[in-house]
Amino acid sequence: MKGEMSIIVKTITKLIYGFIMVYGFYVIVHGHLTPGGGFQGGAIVASAFALLVVTYGNQGVNNYLKKDVFSLVESTGLVLFIAFAFFGLGVTFFYNFLANSGGLFGNPAIIGVNPGDLNTGGTVPIMNIAVGLEVLAALTVIILTMSAASEITKEKEN
């Protein structure tokens, strides 16, 4: 199949793309504790998808990576983000109504330098996940569209 890369690149891609994705989701979920956040983690996951598209070509990934699914995920992330911004409207737009409340992500943080607890942060982790979904889907849609367009343009010229 054309648009593919050599067997060396394929083997290395099979080995590492899962690790890149897991690392990206780690960066998204731990956004309120470690450096990084939704945007950075989403970019890392999208780079794993970009590696797949570059290695196997647009024809090779067409059955597994659907553009419509990623478009839906992108809109879901943006709607989730805006919805959680509106939920704080009892005080102000973007009010952190879950912080220190004791419920979901509501544990109070220990003041000072500490390793951190995943169940803190209020709306910050939820916003991280929403923006992470939005960014990874948006960048993947861009990559898929551009690869399809470049291959089809080349076919037409030949």
Partner: peptide
């Protein structure tokens, strides 16, 4: 905000 990462608490809150 309860978040240990001050940069993220500024960006998202």
């Amino acid at each position: 905000t309860g978040a240990n990462n001050v940069v993220t608490s500024i960006v998202f809150d």
